[in-house]
Design a protein around this nucleic acid. Sequence first.
DNA 1: GTGAAAGCGCTAACAT
DNA 2: ATGTTAGCGCTTTCAC
Lengths: 329, 329
Amino acid sequence: MSTATVSRALSSPERVSDGTRARVSEAVRVTGYTLNQTARSLRQRSARTILVALPDIRNPFFSSILDAIEREVTARGYGMLVANLYFGHQATRLQDYLLSNRADGLLLLDGSLNADDLRVITSAPYSVPLVVACEDIPNSGFHTVVTDNVQAAERATRHLIELGHRRIGHIFGPEQNVVARDRLAGFNRAMNREGLPIAPEWVFRGSFEMDSGFAASARYMTLADRPTAVFAANDESAIGFLSGLRRHGILCPRDISVIGFDDLGVAPHYSPPLSTMRQPRETLGKMAAEALIDLIEGRQGNGTPLRIVLQSELIARESTGRPAELASA
Amino acid sequence: MSTATVSRALSSPERVSDGTRARVSEAVRVTGYTLNQTARSLRQRSARTILVALPDIRNPFFSSILDAIEREVTARGYGMLVANLYFGHQATRLQDYLLSNRADGLLLLDGSLNADDLRVITSAPYSVPLVVACEDIPNSGFHTVVTDNVQAAERATRHLIELGHRRIGHIFGPEQNVVARDRLAGFNRAMNREGLPIAPEWVFRGSFEMDSGFAASARYMTLADRPTAVFAANDESAIGFLSGLRRHGILCPRDISVIGFDDLGVAPHYSPPLSTMRQPRETLGKMAAEALIDLIEGRQGNGTPLRIVLQSELIARESTGRPAELASA
DNA sequence: GTGAAAGCGCTAACAT
DNA sequence: ATGTTAGCGCTTTCAC
């Protein structure tokens, strides 16, 4: 029996006779043969592996998306290489993975990379399949799966307004981050639509990290005139903020309402249980992985860039309530 | 110029003349040549990639270890494939990665796999390098990097005892989990050494998840005779427990002291800031990755299984205090 | 339905 | 210091 026949029996069993197929499986069983994926990759010019690049694995938001991606990718017989980007702007490192044929496509969860650098690898002659997820790269024309952060932030802010708040602040994320900017834009839009003023000193700078929320609380305390509610760009900064306020005797929701974003695992168990916007993380990860593999396998190749925009859901818990001056009403 | 020369210029530049080296780098620059890692892997029988297998990427404890691993691995020029194990016991899936030459070694963060299944791939003829980290596989003889959970759990429990508590409970982790068992053992040891009784109804079953801590709080409330302090197997269950108690008006640390384990990011910002044991996660991940790569590259091949045991650190915050009956003293 | 043979892109052994 | 050659293990024509 030739190696060609074995190869056929293994990868397209319908092309060999029943007898051959049986003899091959038996031989595989007895010898413990495992196909050398490296040789196959070389021959087929496909690694059956994708590369996922993200800004921070430790961030629970990303890690749960990574989980969804891993499930989908595994189900379709692919492996998942993971690269952390730390300080962003490392398109060259990704290039190395992709152009060296170690991965067949890139799933990028970081909007901070330069679109032109990326286009080097996505366009001819390399034509590496790319799907951008979570963090949009605006006007890049890349295939994209995101949630509508502007809309969701507007919804979160409107939640505070509907409760009767008029004096509302925001904890901003990293200045250069698309997601943070979108959430600020949504905040602004909600305020504008209701004709509410936006006080610049009520927009606290932040970094999506707990410490930055904590720092915001210190600045909050120095204000002569304070907002009665705050929309934080994510749950981490909301938690850091609340933690800081508590040390100054400011209680939520009695003295202030706070809404976050992401619905971290701890949100329902925080004190108070945190109101937040929940993104469909599993769906997002799954759809992004599906899209990338479709692209790799030549389906979904109709040219027009894919753009999937998912919606987030308001989860109202106990960290938001009516403002103190209306509480008795 | 032959392909061999180019290969040499790229992988061992000292073996070619200055002129050749310069011409090669120039040509590389001009043509945008990238070495085909797949072909190199096939030829050298090494993928320069490791496989990390873990029970749950979403768990922030694992994801921060993953982060440390990724840094080390990247620094040494390797890639990192990640596989989630969900329900454990999937040694065959890992086999497939390793025996097919997609990965040169396995970094296993899950103690629930069967040692004999693993030995199939670690012993001849395959001899796949393996390092077990975080969760020990007892008596397996595998190279191992862990923290001393018995000792750390004993320290946590002693912290409660030193504060004056005598009636102390425990929230257990998953029954089959080595880490959970070690932490229970450490709890028992501390209690025994102080001659304190362990009430079976004060050892709550758990799963390391917040919900299980929450469920434990419901059982706590039904007790006629309640402990004044609880050592929870991890921060998640501590947080779920506190969250449940709060709904029943039991306040921490006034009415009960609780200490967790892991020092999650939220621990210092929880209400109250959570006392906990901090494991050296970065060190653990880094050392495990180092050990695995040394093994792959043939260093550290002296035969005796490596066993690194790191210590954890008590972080006393505000969730632990003196018991109510001593508080005025 | 099966076999023979070429070749994916690289590196290592050998020769010069 | 460089070139020649063989071959890693697989898949894929092409022949039969």
